[in-house]
Amino acid sequence: MAAEGSSSIDALAQFQLHTTLGPLGASVNFTQANLMMVVASLGVLALLYIGMKPRAMVPGRLQAAAEMGYEFVLSMCTEQIGPEGRRYFPLVFTIFFFILFGNLLGVFPYFFTFTSHIMVTLALSVFVFVLVTIVALKEHGLHFFSYFLPEGIPTILAPLMVAIEIISYFSRIISLSVRLFANMMAGHVMLEVFGAFIIMLGGLGLLGFIPAALSLGVNTLLIGFELLVATLQAYVFAVLTCIYLHDAVHLH
C-alpha cells in the first residue's frame, strides 16, 4: 500500500476513509469503517444464531464458543457489578463482542479496523459515560451528586475536592477511548512499518535479504501479538464499563 516504489513509509495512510458500495455508498458517505461495523455486528449475530442452532447437550465448537462468550461476560458482570449486574449483561455483552469483532476482523488482510479511529472509540466511551450517569441518576436520584464529595472531607477543602472529582469523572471518557484507539492504531502502524521494511530491504538484493527476512519474522510475531491486544482491549473496555456501572449502582 504505502512505500511501494518510494523510500518513505506512510504508515498512517491505511487509516484513511473512503466510501464503499459504489455510488450508493458515496451518496450517503458510507465508508469502509461503517461497512466493517455492519460486518462485525452481523458476525456477532451469526455466531450466536448459528452457534446456538443445534442446541446440543454436548456443544460443538461454534456452540461452545457462543456459550463460553455468554458465560464469560455474565461472570464478568456479576463479579464486577454484583448481583445486580445481570440487568446490565446485555449492554456489556454487546459492547464486548462488538469491539472484539471489530478488533479481530482488523487483523485480516484487506479488512479495516474501525476501532483504530478515535472518533469511533470516543463515541463508544461517550455512550458508556452518558449511560452510566443516567443509571446513577436513576438509582440514586440527586443523591448521586454526593459521589463528587468524598466523605470525611474538611469543609474548607470541599470546593477543591468537588472540582477535582468532577474532572476525574469526566476523564473517564478520554482514558476509556484513548486506550482502545491507541492500542489498535499502534499495532497496525507497527505492522505497516515492518511490512514496508520487507519490501524496501528486499529490494536491496542479497544485502537486504536477511534483514527483510527478520522483518517478516517480526511481522509474524506482531500478528500474534495483535490478536492478544485485540482480545485484551475488548476485555478491558468491557471490564471498565462494568466497574463504572458498579460505581453508578453502589456509589463509592
Partner: peptide, 27 residues
C-alpha cells in the same frame, strides 16, 4: 485486583500515564 487490569508492569505503566494525561486533557 480488578479483573486482571493490573496485569504486567508495562500494563500498569501505560495505564498510569494515560490516567494522568486524560485528567489533564479534560481540565
Amino acid at each position: 485486583d480488578r479483573g486482571g487490569l493490573n496485569g504486567s508492569a508495562m500494563g500498569i505503566g501505560l495505564r498510569v500515564g494515560l490516567e494522568l494525561v486524560s485528567a489533564l486533557v479534560v481540565a
